[in-house]
Each structure stands twice: as structure tokens, then as C-alpha cells.
Design a protein around this nucleic acid. Structure first.
Lengths: 396, 396
DNA sequence: CTCACTTCCTTCGACTACAAAACTAAGTCA
DNA sequence: TGACTTAGTTTTGTAGTCGAAGGAAGTGAG
């Protein structure tokens, strides 16, 4: 199955956007939607009708008058259709269901062991999605509502912490996922759930989620995901930029100056990932004789002001900043935001900022926002859901 | 005056594209256009009719039959409307007129002295455009044909070898253009010609020209212009990516590893421009006691196999490759092409290639084309013309 | 209470862009 | 001569959008 990118109407006044405005409370009535979208009242009325008849929207009584006729309030049906989303990480996965406007309905975090292999891991996570939806997703059973309303599962989005060919749903030479290389996630899932399954890189999904949540008015944005690994997602002209092979944003093996250059899992040395990823920090601290077991421990050390850990965090921040400087000069985004577990690590953020301001064209940093990704632990599943919704609501 | 980007129909079957297909010989008849564009025959007929009535296209007799009715051949009228284009370089400027399909009608290269300042330089170049068109462009005279056909000037596109705010036509802190900082090119020109003037960075125009000429079917492309200075232009999803401030592609002040790090005109040291630009090569060779006066001399030395010059060229290639590696990983283009006078310099190209293949994700380089920009000395004005045509034909 | 006015929403006619089908035109080939 | 092929036009239809007009349902001044 090849999956197209979001069609153009995802951007301006499309059904998804109307839905989102209603769900976020930005719009309550048809008139609100008309004002927000710039579409004529007649067009909005028509589209709202279509959404209502699909069960994606419902009327919810009359609102307060503002000096004239009372608006007929719109709402996203509670208990309506949902999409499932899985944001797989190195040690944990966030699994959730979201309504068709992209709001989280239920979500929980599960521990996972990547090394158990794709079948076991994905099987368990899909089962969890089914549990959250409240019905077993065995192939062929009644879990899928063809078209109309009801608490049915409409699709599943999955984020993978490694290179994914979005178009085919296949994993390509991941560096920290032994046993997953070449695994066809989409095909595997197609055998377990009979709704569309969309697979993408976790950083891409974070980017999409963060952009739709916090920066939907900005055209060009770069999101860095710094956790156990390090990656990035790119929004160009309001859309997720995947590039030719779908590997856009994969900066993990860009070389940075580091002395000594630490060896990377990819076989090279001095890769960004070998210097600035959570895994790299753990390794480096251990080599310095500091007994840490995982990233959580490292972050605790940094928060406690440990000298060695802080120095490493600064070095990591510089490394990220170095690569990001090239990216900012080249791409000239309106915002660079950093997410992932290392994003809350002040020294890293500070030296990344400093490096960026030092190394970029003044013109490029003049109005550049450098932020933390705001949306918290649900950005990933939010992005995944948006991807699925864009794909699923379009077909309706 | 703020200038929008090319409207969307520039991409699929828009009037400009039809025009281009006819001009390039890709299409000769309406049926050809229908096949190429994917539009229905009726739609094509309709559009062609519109173009003919605007004088942008004409019928040119019957063609050879291919087993059925003979096609009514289409052609771009000779002596029809043109646009002017100026590709300003450090020492020379390419000035030309092009028909509305983007084909060069006349062109010539003029020596320029940037340090004479914008008024003198641009004044002379605009005068040259007027000469090529065959009528004086004094404000208010009859040089501009309002709508219909005729050898009238419809617009002028100008490429500047430094940072330009495309939207306003203003130059922003150029490093090698003393006296040009903050100069409002668009406003200046508006006082001399009464047709639209569009200003952009020279690398952007090269990118646009090269993409439209050689890679129009590719979505994502990066073009490096390595001449006296060094810059790049980016095509994302088939359109020129300018970024937030319009400074996208400006990689000239990205830092590269170099020992010793040569000082840059921007005040920093180790900038790509200070290592890999033509100007840098001249400076470095002189410092080594080699008597070269300009880039031409350097290129001659390299072609002759001079040891010092070749070593510098290799170093330059590595530097470009280093930055480009980050760009390729991040952006994942289908093609990277290098143009400008240094593009013909084998050692540079070779070590750039080597560095790229060494430092990029295999996934990203797997199908990546690494090429020379093909279109020769007219790429710049071609790109400029396309920009103007996209702006002008839309209004028709 | 009445009436002017506001806000909300729908209905209807029109326009645009495109496509599909039917048709005309003009050739080839057996 | 007639079947077939290719080229292009005309007609008709459809989808999406807008604008104007108007009905529905309220507010507030007199």
C-alpha cells in the first residue's frame, strides 16, 4: 500500500480543519467557522452538513446570543469515531486513542523491549490500542465501522524510532532496533487490524504534532527530537517534508567536531548521535566511571548540577547547535523547537542556543524562535493521529 | 511592492507550463499538451485558445499525420512579448531577453564593477535590457504594451550575488557588495521601467533555472552556486524554497573545519565562503606566493594540474561536501547540482562527491544524483525570466 | 408591544474549472 | 471504398465556490 501525502485541503478550510476548530473550541458555530476559514457561509454550511451526516460532528443546542439569533452550537461527538496512535520509543511506548479532531481521548505509557522484535512489540501495542478502543481488533470481526458514526476505530498511526519508508511502511537499517531491519510494519499490522495503518518516523510525527498544536500558522519549522536517539522533523510550506527517500530530517549521523570522536553504532565516528543522544550521554558518563544505568539517571545528574554530566550536556548542546546552524542557514525556518527527554535539560538547551546564535546568519536568527516543544508526552501520538485523520477523513 | 510566490498552477498544466512545453518542443499539438498535462482535450483546447488570443501562442500550420488527422501545430510567436533578465555577478553580468516560454532571445555578458554602486551598475544594466528589447524604457513612454501581443517588455528579473529580501526587493548586508547594503533594487528599478521588476538572489535564480530546465520532474533539489562567492538555492516540492526571511540556501557562512581557519569578510573565521569560494582560492594562493589575479587564473592553474591550486580545490570540495552532507541528510533531495565557475573544476567536484558519499546516510545517497548544472551561462537569466513569467502570465 | 436592527444560517442562482461523451475533421491502410 | 486512427471541437454535466437574498431567531429602544 502506498500512501499519499495529505491532500492540499488539509491546509485551508478542509473538513479536517473545520473539525479541529470545533474540537479546540476555536469555533462553536457555523458563523465562527466561516470567519476562521475565510470560506463563505454557504460553503461552510454545506461542509458542516456533510460532516454531520458522517457522524463526525453534531449539533449541541443553541448558544448565547450576541445580539442576534443564537448560534446553533457544533461539537465533536463524544464517544464518536477515534483513531489509534502508537509512539514507540526506545524503552517506552505511548499508546492512545484520539478523536477525529486530534484530541487525546485515552492514552497510556507502556514499557517495551525493542529487542523482543517487531512481532512481539507491535502485537502487544496493537492489542493495547484495541483495549483502549474497547473492542478486540481481530481481523474480520466487527471492530471497524464502515462509514457511519459510533466509537469505531478508523485507523492507526505508528511512530518508529528509526528510519521508516513512509510510503511503504517498511523499516530501513535502524541503528538501535536489532531485528527490525526491513520489517514491513504496515503489512504486519494489516493482518491484525482492518483499518488503514500509517507508519512514520517518530521525529516526523513529533514535528507534525507540534506544528499542528503550536505553530500551525508558521510555514517553515524544524523540530529536533532528542531522547535516547536524536532525529528531526521538517515542516516546509506547512507540510511535513519527507524528502526523496523519506529520510529527510535524519541528522543523527551528521559528523560534528568532537575530540575524541566517539564511535557510533553506524560504524563511523563523531556522529551527532554518538555525541549528543541520550544513549551517548549514558555511555560517556559510564566511561568516566559514573555509575548511571539509563537516560533518566543522566538527566537526574544534570538537574543536580553534576559537573561531568553537565559538561557532557553542554558538549551535546554545542553539537546539536552546530548541525542546526547549518540547517537554519540552509532552510531558514521560522521556528526551531526541541523535544524529547533531553529537551528539558537546561545546559544542553542553553549551549545549543548559544551555538545557533553564534553560527547562523543574523538574518536567519533575527526573528527565529528557538523553543521547547510544548505539547508534552502526547505530541507523538497527536502527530500520528493527525496523519491518520488526514488520510481517513479525506476519503469520507 | 510585495510579490507573491508563483501561484500553484505554475506546477501542473498552468498556462506557463503549456507555453513551456510548446517552446521546448515537448509538445507540438493540442493533443500532445493533453497527454503531457493530463488535462482533458477540451480543457487544453480552451486554454490554448486563451493563449492564442493573448498572442502568447500561435498556430503554425499542419504537422505530419500519425495515422489520423494531422495535428495543428502550435508555436511560440517569434518577435512576441519578452521579459528582461539580469544575472549580476561579481565582475560580470549576463543580460538578456527571453520569450514568455523562458527561451533566450538575446543575451550578452557585460563587465561590471560592483563597487561603482547600485545606481550606476543597475542603471547601465537596465539600459542594456532596453537596448536588447529595442526600445528605450524611460518611465511613461510606450515601451510597455498593456495586454496584447507585440515585442513588448513584460517584466524584468534581476539576480543579485548577495542576500536579497525577495518580497521587498531590498538587499540585506551583502558581504562583497560595498555600498549596496539596504539598497532597494525594486524601488530603484520601478523608477526606470514601468513593468514589474522582480529581484532575487543569484543562487535562487540559478536553482529555478536549472530545475525548470533539467529537473522539472523532480520534487526536491539543491543547487550550489560556486563562483566568486558561494551560495545555494533550494527547490522543495517543486517550488523555490525561500524560507522565513528569504535567506534560505545561504550557506556561505556555515563553519567548516579548516586549519588554519581563514578569516571571513563577515568577521568570523572558517566560513565556507572563506574556504571554498573563488575569492578564497585567489586569496589563499596569493598568500602562498602564487601570482594569480583572479578566479580565471586559479581555474587555469587547476586545469594545468598545479599542485598548490589543486590541493586548495580539493580542500574546497571537501568543505562544500561537508556542509552539503548535512544538507542532504536533513533535506534528502533527489538531486544536488553544482554550478558557477568552480563547477567545472574536477578536483573540487571529485572531493565534494567523495565527502558526500562518505558522510551521508546510505539511504539518502542511494538514488541521489550529484551533477553539474547543465544549462551553462544562461541558467541565471533563465531562472530570472521564469520568475517574472510566473508572475506576469498569471495576471493575463 | 412594536419595530428597527443584529446575528445566524439556508436557499438559490451564477460562475469557474474541469471532465466525459459525442461529434466533426482529416488523415492511413487494406 | 470502408474500417480504423488520430486530432480537435462542441455540448453537456459535475463539483466547488461565491454572493445576494431571505427566513429564523434573537436584542434593545421607544
Amino acid at each position: 500500500m502506498t500512501i499519499d501525502d495529505a491532500p492540499r485541503d488539509a491546509l485551508r478550510g478542509g473538513p479536517r480543519e473545520l473539525l479541529r476548530w470545533v474540537a479546540t473550541g476555536a469555533a462553536v458555530s457555523r458563523a465562527d467557522l466561516s470567519r476562521l476559514s475565510g470560506l463563505s457561509p454557504s460553503t461552510v454550511s454545506q461542509r458542516v452538513e456533510a460532516l454531520i451526516s458522517q457522524g463526525l460532528l453534531e449539533e449541541a443546542g443553541a448558544g448565547r446570543s450576541r445580539g442576534g439569533r443564537r448560534p446553533r452550537q457544533l461539537a465533536v461527538p463524544t464517544g464518536g469515531a477515534v483513531v489509534g496512535a502508537i509512539d514507540l520509543g526506545a524503552h517506552h511506548a505511548r499508546v492512545g486513542t484520539l478523536d477525529l479532531s486530534g484530541r487525546v481521548v485515552k492514552a497510556r505509557t507502556l514499557p517495551v523491549r525493542i529487542e523482543d522484535g517487531p512481532e512481539a512489540v507491535l502485537g502487544a501495542l496493537l492489542a493495547e490500542v484495541a483495549t483502549l478502543v474497547g473492542s478486540a481488533p481481530a481481523a474480520g470481526d466487527g471492530a471497524v465501522a464502515g462509514g457511519s458514526a459510533g466509537g469505531a476505530l478508523r485507523g492507526v498511526g505508528i511512530g518508529i524510532p528509526g528510519p521508516v519508508q513512509h510510503s511503504t511502511g517498511r523499516i530501513v537499517s535502524p541503528s538501535r532496533m536489532p531485528g527490525w531491519n526491513g520489517f514491513d510494519v504496515a503489512a504486519f499490522c494489516a493482518g491484525r487490524v482492518d483499518v488503514p495503518v500509517i507508519v512514520d518516523n517518530d521525529a516526523n510525527l513529533m514535528a507534525l504534532g507540534a506544528h499542528r498544536t503550536a505553530h500551525s500558522e508558521l510555514d517553515h519549522a524544524v523540530y529536533i527530537k532528542a531522547g535516547t536517539g536524536i532525529g528531526s522533523g521538517v515542516i516546509a510550506s506547512g507540510r511535513l517534508h519527507r524528502g526523496a527517500q523519506g529520510s529527510a530530517g535524519d541528522i543523527s549521523h551528521c559528523r560534528v567536531v568532537a575530540d575524541p570522536a566517539p564511535p557510533c553504532t553506524c560504524g563511523n565516528a563523531g556522529c551527532l548521535e554518538a555525541v549528543a543522544s541520550g544513549a551517548a550521554l549514558v555511555t560517556a558518563l559510564r566511561e568516566q566511571g559514573v555509575p548511571v544505568s539509563d537516560l533518566t539517571g543522566v538527566i537526574r545528574l544534570i538537574d543536580d548540577g553534576d559537573r561531568q554530566a553537565t559538561a557532557l550536556a553542554r558538549q551535546a548542546g554545542r553539537a546539536v547547535g552546530e548541525i542546526l546552524a547549518v540547517v537554519v542557514n540552509f532552510f531558514n525556518p521560522q521556528v526551531v523547537a526541541i523535544g524529547g527527554r533531553l529537551a528539558d535539560c537546561e545546559p544542553l538547551l542553553a549551549s545549543m542556543r548559544a551555538t545557533l546564535y553564534e553560527r547562523c546568519l543574523p538574518l536567519a536568527t533575527q526573528t527565529l524562535l528557538i523553543e521547547r516543544v510544548a505539547a508534552g508526552q502526547d505530541v507523538g501520538i497527536t502527530g500520528a493521529a493527525h496523519l491518520v485523520i488526514d488520510h481517513v477523513v479525506a476519503a469520507a
